[in-house]
Design a protein around this nucleic acid. Structure first.
Length: 242
DNA sequence: ACGGTTGTTAGGCC
DNA sequence: AGGCCTAACAACCG
């Protein structure tokens, strides 16, 4: 699940805002009692991390590659975590769970969360430029500590939009291009959010899982960089800065 | 039916 | 110390 999907989850659980947890269930090995009979103060997110805030601590949930959730409904598989309220329940499947005891402002820099109102492209660039020059931009876009919320779909589509090859090296990409990439992670995330809500995300993919690009050039599939994640590349349209 | 995957962390090894 | 690698998670889609 990428950042925008977590924002949608946050919107969907608003009916539990301020509500007391009646039961805590699930096979996850964590302290269930910690949430029992406690009130949810609010829900937050930082990139792909979903945060359920209680008085004095936060429940951290990450859905990773296989995770999913249901609200007031269940799947056939067992829930790792189930928070039951008097008006419904949140069921989480195949996710990572932990507690955060520090204040969230000490743990998270909201300037890096592309779907936060505090998102700051200049600051993102500053953090990005502290990285080594020979690192591939494709790898950097998957660094959740820089591009919080970007996943493999957003990464591929942003690189196609900006016409930058994923194997381009940070130190070789023109500064303006870097700024454009950063700006597009934000803009594409907003599009992702809009399209996902309409259930038409895949319809708008230009390269991700495509065999040809907009201009009908072939799109090649390649596992790139240290992250070895699937990249979709139009060798004609995209420039490799190396 | 089975290979691929919208992702991250933990831990071992050098 | 820190980079690099792998396993784990264990569902779902085509």
């Amino acid at each position: 699940m990428e950042g925008p999907s977590i924002v949608i989850l946050k919107e969907e659980v608003q009916l539990f805002n301020g509500k007391e947890v009646q039961h805590v269930k699930g096979y996850g090995k964590f302290n269930h009692k910690r949430m029992l009979h406690k009130k949810v103060i609010y829900f937050k997110s930082w990139g792909k991390q979903f945060l359920v805030c209680f008085d004095g601590f936060t429940l951290w949930i990450h859905f990773g590659l296989f995770g999913s959730y249901k609200i007031s409904a269940t799947k056939t598989i067992n829930a790792k975590l189930s928070l039951v309220f008097d008006n419904g329940e949140l069921n989480c499947y195949v996710c990572s769970i932990k507690f955060i005891d520090e204040p969230l402002d000490e743990v998270y820099d909201w300037r890096l969360d592309m779907l936060s109102e505090k998102w700051n492209p200049k600051y993102v660039k500053q953090v990005l430029m502290e990285k080594k020059e020979d690192v591939q931009i494709g790898d950097l876009l998957l660094d959740a500590k820089i591009f919080s919320g970007v996943g493999n779909i957003i990464r591929n589509e942003v690189l196609y939009r900006t016409k930058v090859h994923p194997e381009s090296l940070l130190g070789k990409i023109p500064s303006r291009k870097i700024t454009e990439i950063i700006r597009q992670t934000h803009l594409y995330s907003l599009d992702f959010l809009k399209w996902r809500k309409r259930g038409e995300l895949a319809k708008h993919w230009k390269v991700y899982k495509q065999t040809t690009c907009d201009k009908r050039h072939p799109v090649i599939k390649k596992d790139t960089g240290k992250t070895k994640r699937r990249s979709f590349i139009c060798e004609t349209c995209m420039v490799k800065y190396d």
